[in-house]
Design a protein around this nucleic acid. Structure first.
Lengths: 341, 341
DNA sequence: CTTCATTGTGACACCGGTGTCATGTCATTT
DNA sequence: AAATGACATGACACCGGTGTCACAATGAAG
């Protein structure tokens, strides 16, 4: 047999027209049961598969979603944030469940990325994933919006159109962390992350955390706030600088687990014991979290549910259905890094 | 503007024919520099993007690769083997570097998966990734081969066509582990994994390990070999059963890091100290490995190079070029789990 | 026996590009 | 001045499906 079989080949062998083959294979009610069976039979025999390019071209939809992962530009090229990796896994599954293919692509946050995938009809919609500088990001989202591109994003709320973004309730997560530290009487607390609009998610975590302290007439000393992006290296450096500036604290809330891991490393190297001297709370609950030494207390985001929601919401957008925005509820997972006894 | 711009729209506004637009956009040398510029200008203005479906249909290639991930069926649905996640990351990058898109899909190892992606012209080639029962797997690979599908796979050697698979030199990796343990005088050694043809990679690791012992007139007691698939849970159970059968050993070689992590947990719970009582060596060097307690000594596979090789080899196959099979050289990373002093 | 709805099928245009062939223009050669 | 070639462009078929329309066959209704 020369090359791949086409619907014409099937038509030929089944003794019907190509139109009928097309209908039969898509189980159109228009076609007689008997011919339908015959066609399916021949198709199977010839190992025929519908050419997606032709079919997509005609129907003007691809049954494919694109996942764009943005990375912190400073990040080592070889490692990917495990939290996003987990999201990627759950998104993949969610796509498979609804019969969509998934294209993935890593984007340099700095680079120009336009909505290539959707514009070129390669995907019906786009899922955006990534921490990164939000200000720059926002601008590009606006462009997407203006173009009418179908997309959802994880994390940062897009102001004009809050329905586009799905996230866990970061503010609430921050509160959980604060409550826990207050419970175990660690109120002299440092925060490592970015407490500004540049990282809305981190900011929300910080605000929830801070507000909870304020509620109890406590406060976070601003000198105990150190900037970091979501890498262990950055968390390590930030914590180290706090330590070398001789700033004292008995608890540390890291805006992400990777930061927390870096922080623990910095603390340990400085001879500061976790959790005896400093209790550490992270955010995300990445797989590593339970394997660190000590195991990391952290605010868990349900990545599996998150991926599902991203996909279902995106599909709703594609079908012009209404979206019910749901924030995911984070959960505190207490482990060794805050166990004081 | 109604809908997306097509090349005809560009042609209209640029005052040339559609053919010329097509050529100009692909920077064909046939078209005059001036018109080329003009066309590019208009295209940019109208935010035009080539429709991939049309273009793929015509050229009969998709500039897309598909990545199929096979999972141990027993595996918890929510977690993905971190080693494959790392591979996925490097493959994605490698694809991006050569201008290919990447479709990903998780496959139930048990399910029927045919070569849907390639048959339906959605991808030019396929990358297969996954531990799993090799016997069943092999059969499906044969089918792919017979169909002339372009694919490469990680790990297990496909007997008829060894060029198809790329892997690190597992045998050598096993030797490295053995040498190290012998060096530190831990020769009463257990092996956790699957030492049979069902898991060729694990088998090779074991064989390298075992042969190295034999070379030194040492041997691995067959009662100290326990079966496990590549999950921490399975490693945990396997190790536990060794312990509860009162089998003594002072070193343990796990066929993968996840197994090793489960093993460490089992040992620790039984009051056996790592590395004082039992030295543990894993395989893969997944990101978690350096964060375990104690940090895990392991045989590192260079995932970044591996992903690159998979992609470049697959592209060579697609272009009918010759492939030079390269095994990747694994490297021993010594960490706390084998440090006896 | 005609009329009309129903059912199943084939013919054909179409999706938006790409590649081939034909055409036209202009400078160079003889 | 006629012939030759290089260069630039347009016309058109084609990739392999999908959707619309027309039409034949059948049976029911009038």
């Amino acid at each position: 047999m020369k090359g791949k079989a086409t619907s014409f080949d099937i038509a030929h062998y089944a003794g019907v027209s190509q139109s009928t083959v097309s209908r039969a294979l898509r189980n159109s009610p228009l076609v007689n049961e008997e011919t339908r069976k015959k066609v399916h039979e021949v198709a199977k025999e010839l190992n025929y598969k519908v050419d997606k390019n032709a079919s997509n071209l005609r129907t003007q939809q691809s049954n494919t979603l694109a996942l764009l992962l943005f990375e912190d530009p400073t990040k080592d090229d070889s490692q990917i944030n495990p939290f996003f990796l987990a999201m990627l896994g759950s998104i993949t599954r969610a796509c498979a469940n609804v019969g969509y293919d998934l294209l993935i692509s890593f984007q340099q946050a700095s680079k120009d990325w336009h909505a290539d995938y959707e514009d070129s009809h390669r995907a019906d919609g786009i899922i955006l994933l990534g921490y990164g500088d939000f200000i720059d990001y926002q601008e590009k989202l606006d462009k997407l919006l203006a173009q009418g591109t179908k997309f959802v994003c994880w994390g940062a709320k897009v102001t004009q159109s809050p329905n586009l973004s799905i996230s866990c309730d970061n503010y609430h997560g921050g509160q959980l962390a604060a409550k826990h530290l207050i419970d175990i009487q660690r109120t002299n607390c440092a925060f490592i992350g970015d407490a500004s609009e540049h990282s809305p998610e981190f900011f929300a975590r910080f605000n929830g955390f801070n507000d909870e302290f304020t509620k109890k007439n406590l406060s976070i000393d601003s000198r105990k706030i150190a900037n970091a992006i979501s890498t262990d290296e950055s968390g390590f450096q930030a914590t180290k600088s706090l330590i070398s500036n001789n700033i004292k604290f008995d608890a540390l809330f890291a805006a992400s687990d990777l930061i927390a891991i870096g922080a623990i490393k910095a603390l340990t190297e400085a001879g500061i014991k976790v959790p005896e001297d400093v209790a550490v709370v992270g955010f995300d609950d990445i797989p590593i979290a339970s394997f660190t030494n000590p195991p990391l207390t952290t605010v868990q985001q349900d990545t599996s549910k998150a991926g599902e929601m991203l996909v279902t919401n995106l599909l709703k957008m594609i079908n012009d259905e209404d979206i019910t925005v749901n924030s995911l509820l984070p959960e505190l997972i207490v482990r060794g890094s805050t166990k004081t006894h």
